[in-house]
Amino acid sequence: MFEARLSSTALLKKIVDALKEILHQSTLDCSDSGIQLQAMDNSHVSLVSMSLRSDCFEKYRCDRNLSLGLDLRSLTKVLKCASGDDAVTIKSADKADKLQLSFESASMDRTADYELRLLNLDQEHLAIPETDYACVVHMPATEFARICRDLSTFSESVVIACTKDGIKFSANGEMGSVNIKLSETSKGDVSVQVEEPVTLSFAGRYLNTFTRATPLSEKVKISMAPEVPLLVEYPIEDYGYIRYYLAPKVDE
């Protein structure tokens, strides 16, 4: 038996919004310690890894490890029927083919129960190696979203260069070019830790989809090392994270 209750549906909506652009279907792995998800997009260029500890939930019970195959578009449709301040309980019996979602209004005078058909997904698990990132940058999540949006109007490719002086985002296209540079600030909203400078090129369209997680967190952490995938991490309050990995572009 798996049962988890969140006091606010808004958090679940934000998490699903952060995943659904990249993944249409995915398996949720539930265990005693919490909920995890790991999946690549269809083109195998980016990977999303989500972790939510059990103490994020008002009530959490998971008697045995369970994998729930979800259609995220269907889940989005169900979540649209709920108000952000509803409490939500998700429930699934062992070996069940359905996920139950119950929404309870804040005034507790309305309950709505939904059943979502579970999918049998054959999902590949990847081993993400421990990486010592040469550059780690923290910045406001809204600033990162704005930069990704602004750069994607110029070019399909975005170059991220990180040095001790700061982080620079560049795009160069037919209509012209753009360079946006952020330096470390004294108020601490931008911090840059650099062991060695790194410059990598990425597909801007993926960076843009990662910024769907912006409502989850005020800050985003960007980690880079030479010739390895970029890591963009959004914390989920104090209870977990959504991490996006993106393979760098390489010259032919």
């Binding site: 195998h44 260029v45 980016s46 990847l126 081993a127 190696p129 090129s201 572009k249 032919e252």
Partner: peptide, 14 residues
């Protein structure tokens, strides 16, 4: 021109 490797090249399947 540039292209992207499959992520599996960086993260081996388990």
């Amino acid at each position: 021109a540039s292209f992207q490797h499959d992520l599996i090249l960086y993260f081996p399947a388990t």
